[in-house]
Design a protein around this nucleic acid. Structure first.
Lengths: 238, 238
DNA sequence: AGCTTAATCAAACGCTTGACTTAGTCAACC
DNA sequence: GGTTGACTAAGTCAAGCGTTTGATTAAGCT
């Protein structure tokens, strides 16, 4: 309350922040809905109710806008992931339980904060894009955080060979991204009895499932053993 | 050799077929590399060395071209999947071993036939697209084949509740599609020690891994049980 | 030889795209 | 009271877009 001269105490520069945010919101929505090539700047500014020049004023270019959309969500998301990881590392379980680590990774990316389903679909699109620019963008914002989770998983699974750990983390990313992308295949095949867009139900199944998958026996290097009649997994505890 | 009057006995209508195929090849490549919005008709015809009008003559529109690209690969692929499924159902193992069913589903989609990595990346892009048109396209070409595999899996896993089966099939699709899309995350995180673009190595790990995942205990409906110290999965049969 | 049909071409159509500019508005700060 | 930062309104620009046209060619049939 130091500066009493203000008549409007809510938000200095009411135009500045809201315009920027409205552009980011519209861009996030339309990029995720129609792709980066599919959504034009004109569509975005019309949806945001601002002028075309405002985009160039704030973000320089369309690519700059995409990066801003991405950074706005990713930075707090990575932060929350690491906080949750630190929390479960400091908890009474040492090393932390597998499902705690997995939850710390998945929750911030899939729940309502950090853009929710809209931003999630955008990330799925970028994962499928695989262009050089997109790869660099993702590497820049994801690498260090993901590496820390790989370390935590290795601690929790000391007997799992690195090769298995790596592949299974790859599959973790796969299930997360594909569930976020939600191409509608599983709904089509099961009369909507499975619904990946129900985030809570999705996570409630995905987390314990992935924990089981990580804990399963390592896959041996040798080509698939075909010992008949072994339809249940052999219980060789390391 | 019946019609001796022909001087060119190789392929009637040499223009028609080769032009069509060249357009399809170029479109498949450029669509998968740059997306459907990213690759323009002009880029495609330049790459194929044909005239712009040829695309509209053969396929009607850009969307028609995409559908033709899709159909050309998908139909033989679905056919091969069902053949392999029939083979392993007729084999000596009854019901067929899990990994045989999974192989029958994954192999035709990931190995060299049916477009290989190029077409695989296109499918991954379409999965992330999730527009109405794309969903319909995929539903039309995938639904019946996938439903048959769900049935086969249900036969092989009589004790697995339908809910678990559905989610796990969803995750199977996820790992397949994400591995095909190959966003480079796992290479970046592991100094290239994991390489999803090596199809053989990919499949050699993925098939037994997925078999284990399908065979793991069902996830109970109740919210995640947090009974401490149970770092290995509880062995509640059915 | 004459007619039909399929395949291909060069050229253009009307529109949209991302980028950028210029002139002007208007509240907030010094 | 002038300056500044954050825009708006309106437009320009070259490039590129998907699509269409009408002419041309080649092959097949009768």
């Amino acid at each position: 309350m130091a500066v009493a001269a203000h008549n409007a105490d809510v938000a200095i520069d009411p135009r500045g922040e809201s315009t920027r945010a409205r552009i980011l919101d519209s861009a996030e929505y339309l990029f995720s809905e129609q792709g980066m090539n599919g959504a034009s700047l004109r569509t975005i500014v019309a949806h945001a109710g601002v002028n075309t020049a405002a985009v160039h004023y704030h973000f320089g270019s369309k690519q700059g806008l995409l990066e801003a959309v991405f950074a706005r969500r990713i930075l707090p998301m990575a932060e929350e992931r690491l906080e949750l990881l630190a929390d479960c590392r400091a908890g009474e379980d040492r090393p932390p339980l597998l499902h705690q680590i997995i939850t710390a990774f998945l929750e911030p990316g899939m729940r309502g904060r950090h853009g929710g389903a809209t931003f999630a679909r955008l990330r799925a699109r970028m994962a499928a894009d695989a262009s050089d620019e997109t790869r660099k963008l993702m590497a820049h914002y994801f690498d260090s955080s993901s590496a820390k989770f790989l370390d935590a998983l290795a601690d929790a699974l000391p007997d799992l060979p690195a090769r298995d750990l790596h592949w299974r983390f790859h599959y973790l990313l796969a299930t997360m991204v594909y569930t976020m992308a939600n191409p509608g295949r599983i709904q089509a095949l099961t009369d909507n009895s499975c619904d990946p867009s129900d985030t809570d139900a999705s996570l409630a199944y995905l987390v314990p499932y992935l924990a089981q998958c990580f804990q399963a026996d390592p896959i041996s290097e040798a080509p698939v053993r075909l010992d008949r009649k072994t339809n249940t997994h052999n219980s060789s505890t390391n």
